[in-house]
C-alpha cells in the first residue's frame, strides 16, 4: 500500500475516536516534544532479510540510502549537548556503504551510539567485520529476536533466521557483548508474531534470559518489548488476515493515558534516508513530516524549533500508548 492508502485506511478505522480526541480527553492535546535526546537515523531501506512485520518494508531489492552529506549533517546536529544518543537503524545498517566511516566519526563524540542489527547479517562474510567494528567503538547492539520459538521467528523473519541470530549472538557474546564488566551492551527486541499485543516486558525478559541461557548459552543485557505498529508490511498482514479491525480495537481498548507523557517522539527525532525529519519511524513511513513550525530536513536542523515542536499524531499512535506503552526502547517507564 502507498503511504496515502495506509493513512486513509487508518483514519477510516479510527473515525469513531481519533487519537487526537483521546489525547484531548486526557488534556494532552496538542502533544509537544520536550527535548531531542535521541537522533534516530534510518540510514537505508536495504536489508538482507524481508521480514513480514517490517514497517519500513526493507528488503534486498531496496536501494535507498542516506547520502554522506546528510550523514555529516546528522553528526553536526548530534553535536548539540542535549542530544545524548545516536540510534542507527534501517533496513540493515551494515548494508549502508558508509556505516564503518560513520561509526568512526560518531565514536569520538562521547555520545551513546547504538546500532539496530538483525544480527543474521553478521554471519555473512562481507559484513562479519562489523562484529569487531562495533566492539572496538563500544557501539551498543540491539538485535531483533521476535520469539524464542524457532518456528515463529522463522515465520516472521524467514527460513533459518532464528538459528542465524542465535549463532551471531554467540559471536557477540564471545567479543564481550552482554557479558558482565565489559561495558559492551547487547539488547534484544521482542515483537508479537501475529495480531496480538506483547505481554509484560519483565516476564518476557525473564523467560528470554532463562531459555537463551539454558538452551544456547546466550547472555544479553535487556529485552525490549515492542508493540507492532499497524503500518507497512504489518498493516498488510493485518488486512489480509482479517485481523485489522480487531487489532485496532485492541490498541484503542488498551490506551493508557499514563503512557502519553513518556512516548518516545517527545524526546526523539527521526531522520529518514533522504534526510527528511519526522517525529518517529512510523510517521516516516506514512510520510507525515514534522509540523509546520519545524524544519523539514536535517541540513536545516534547529534545536530550539524542533525540541518544542507539536507532534503529528494519527490513528497508528495508539500502538505507542497501549498497555505499558511501547517505544524503540521497549515498554515505557511511566
Amino acid at each position: 500500500m502507498s503511504h496515502t492508502e495506509q493513512q486513509e485506511l487508518l483514519e477510516h478505522l479510527n473515525s469513531s475516536q481519533s487519537f487526537a480526541e483521546r489525547l484531548k480527553a486526557c488534556s494532552s492535546y496538542p502533544l509537544h516534544a520536550q527535548a531531542v535526546e535521541t537522533l534516530q537515523m534510518n540510514i537505508t531501506r536495504r536489508c538482507n532479510l524481508c521480514c513480514r512485520h517490517c514497517h519500513v518494508a526493507a528488503s534486498p531489492d531496496r536501494s535507498e540510502e542516506m547520502s554522506r552529506e546528510d550523514m555529516e549533517a546528522c553528526i553536526r546536529a548530534a553535536a548539540h549537548p542535549e542530544i545524548k544518543t545516536l540510534d542507527i537503524t534501517g533496513g540493515a545498517p551494515e548494508m549502508h556503504s558508509r556505516l564503518a566511516w560513520f561509526i568512526n566519526e560518531a565514536a569520538g563524540m562521547q555520545k551513546r551510539l547504538l546500532v539496530r542489527s538483525n544480527a543474521a547479517i553478521l554471519l555473512e562474510k562481507q559484513y562479519a567485520h562489523f562484529l569487531d567494528i562495533y566492539a572496538d567503538a563500544g557501539v551498543e547492539v540491539v538485535v531483533s529476536l521476535p520469539n524464542l520459538h524457532r518456528d515463529r521467528t522463522d515465520r516472521m523473519r524467514g527460513p533459518e533466521v532464528f538459528g542465524k541470530i542465535v549463532k551471531a549472538l554467540g559471536k557477540l557474546n564471545a567479543r564481550g557483548y552482554g557479558m558482565p564488566g565489559t561495558g559492551l551492551v547487547l539488547d534484544l527486541v521482542h515483537n508479537p508474531v501475529g495480531a496480538f499485543l506483547p505481554g509484560s516486558q519483565t516476564a518476557l525478559e525473564e523467560d528470554y534470559r532463562t531459555r537463551l541461557g539454558a538452551d544456547y548459552g546466550i547472555a544479553f543485557n535487556r529485552l525490549y518489548c515492542l508493540t507492532n505498529c499497524p503500518v507497512g508490511r504489518y498493516l498488510d498482514f493485518l488486512k489480509r488476515s482479517g485481523n485489522l479491525g480487531q487489532y485496532i480495537g485492541m490498541l484503542k481498548e488498551a490506551f493508557n493515558s499514563d503512557a502519553v507523557g513518556s512516548v518516545m517522539c517527545r524526546t526523539t527525532l527521526s531522520v529518514g534516508f533522504d534526510g527528511r525529519l519526522f517525529d518517529c519511524d512510523f510517521n516516516q513511513i506514512l510520510d507525515l513530516t514534522l509540523s509546520s513550525e519545524a524544519p523539514v530536513h536535517i541540513r536545516d536542523f534547529d534545536y530550539d524549533k524542533i525540541a518544542r515542536r507539536e507532534i503529528v499524531v494519527r490513528g497508528h499512535c495508539y500502538s505507542c500508548t497501549a498497555g505499558a506503552g511501547s517505544s524503540c526502547q521497549g515498554s515505557l517507564e511511566t
Binding site: N147, L148, H149, H190, P192, G194, F196, L197, P198, G199, S200, A203, L204, D207, Y208
Partner: peptide, 10 residues
C-alpha cells in the same frame, strides 16, 4: 489464548 501468545508461550 491472546495472553499466552503475548507472553511468548508456545
Amino acid at each position: 489464548t491472546n495472553k499466552c501468545l503475548s507472553l511468548g508461550l508456545g
